[in-house]
Write a protein that binds this DNA or RNA. Structure first.
Lengths: 118, 118
DNA sequence: CTTATATTTTAGGTATTACTAAAATGTCAA
DNA sequence: TTGACATTTTAGTAATACCTAAAATATAAG
């Protein structure tokens, strides 16, 4: 027997980019946006010219981040001011935390990683 | 003016699922596989019957995880034994760490780290 | 050599993603 | 009102992701 089909596979609820923080931070542009907001709240236009995609694209990314609970929006005149709302990243952090003991039984500086050690 | 095109946009190097740990852990099945490997190294077949996709799909996921440096493979007879290689998650951890102060100025029981540096 | 086992790879399909350009919405100001 | 500004939404497209079934590879055993 070659393969055992595990079910008809409805392909229906993959949760998607919206609302899942892991999916939300998978995109490098979205991480860049979050990083910018880490410096403080900003209107969309301020983010746009640091990011090399169109205004529309940034707006769409912000929507995804907002649906994931990672940013907040506030109205100010005709602007929309966005700010980071990192609480939702706690879910990601909790997951990664399980693995911490694997790479650092000794937790050094916490500032340098990226190695191979093999 | 409606939009300012930021460049022809070659759509070429989005890094993709392979080799980018953020993209690698975006998929829930892959996170599940990593979680299983956290219990200890395992041959592919052992993972397959806890995951509800075909053998082929699991093999593909493991390939992506391997390309991202998140798992290791070892041969044992005709089996391939996989094990978690969490070091690469340090990159994710480092990124998330920037945000920790946002949701916990007091860092309770989470993973318990000395983030500091600010 | 032949067959069974364990896994990987390929081919093909469908869904989702990320992007752009343009249209739509909402707000401010003359 | 009219027009400019700030942002969002829509429509359409190309690339990517994930999945299955089946073929291919590799090792072990009779």
């Amino acid at each position: 027997m070659t393969n055992a089909s595990p079910a008809p596979k409805s392909r229906g609820k993959t949760s998607g980019t919206g609302n899942d923080p892991f999916a939300a931070i998978a995109d490098p542009t979205r991480r860049a946006l979050l990083d910018m907001l880490l410096e403080g709240e900003q209107p969309v236009a301020a983010l746009v010219d640091r990011v090399d995609v169109t205004f529309g694209a940034v707006s769409q990314h912000l929507k995804i981040l907002r649906e994931a609970g990672l940013v907040e929006r506030r109205a100010a005149g005709r602007q929309r001011i966005y700010s980071a709302r990192a609480a939702r990243l706690a879910e990601v952090d909790a997951w990664v935390a399980q693995y911490r003991r694997f790479w650092s039984e000794k937790l050094d500086t916490l500032g340098d990683y990226l190695d191979e050690t093999s």
